[in-house]
């Protein structure tokens, strides 16, 4: 019997895999409801990417609408969304784009910005996922929409594409008061 049992191992492993995939189907990775939505952005203080003597922290989020974009130079989707971030940084005058450079090296990150352009007002440098973990970042790119009071209105997982701002991000925000609309829209 012991001999026959070992031939069941592949089937059991496959059953585990299916359970996992079934779980995965239920959770659309692009629409994970972040527990942070509607709450104040987690506390953070990080050095600035190109100037370690300065820091970025929550106070940089206050007073205006921010898009906090988590990115890395090794991430292909981040490159795909780069052009759209550039466009947003030109066209949305009262929105600042902050970068959270995540699990990256400074040289690679700076090189990417130099070449493709820099849509960010300032970039926080988080090579070891110290802040990312508190923000619930699980992959790049992710983009948080934060209102003028520092509350997270929306979390976008995956690349920001043409149309993402108008159809997904802006509707969660009251542009006149620069505040999130009430939780749950």
């Amino acid at each position: 019997m012991g001999k026959s049992l070992k031939f069941l191992v592949p089937l059991v492993l496959f059953a585990l895999l299916v359970a996992l995939l079934f779980f995965g189907l239920g959770t659309d990775p692009r629409k994970v409801p972040s527990p942070l939505v509607g709450k104040p952005a987690p506390e953070f203080t990080l050095p600035v990417l190109n100037d370690p003597s300065r820091t970025v922290s929550n106070t940089d989020l206050l007073g205006q609408i921010s898009l906090v974009n988590v990115w890395a130079s090794w991430c292909v989707s981040c490159r795909a969304e780069h052009a759209e971030l550039m466009r947003l940084s030109r066209e949305l005058k009262d929105v600042q784009i902050l970068g959270l450079n995540w699990k990256d090296t400074k040289e690679d990150a700076l090189r990417m910005l130099k070449v493709s352009g820099d849509p960010y007002r300032v970039n926080a440098f988080d090579p070891d996922n110290r802040v990312g973990i508190h923000w619930g970042v699980y992959g790049a790119p992710e983009t948080f929409l934060v209102d003028a009071e520092g509350r997270i209105c929306y979390k976008k997982i995956g690349p920001v594409e043409r149309g993402t701002w108008d159809t997904e991000l802006a509707p969660t925000l009251d542009l006149a008061t620069k505040k999130c609309k009430e939780p749950g829209r």
Partner: peptide
Amino acid sequence: TFLVRSGVLTSV
């Protein structure tokens, strides 16, 4: 095929 078409994982 499943991974590419089900949206379980994000990918370019």
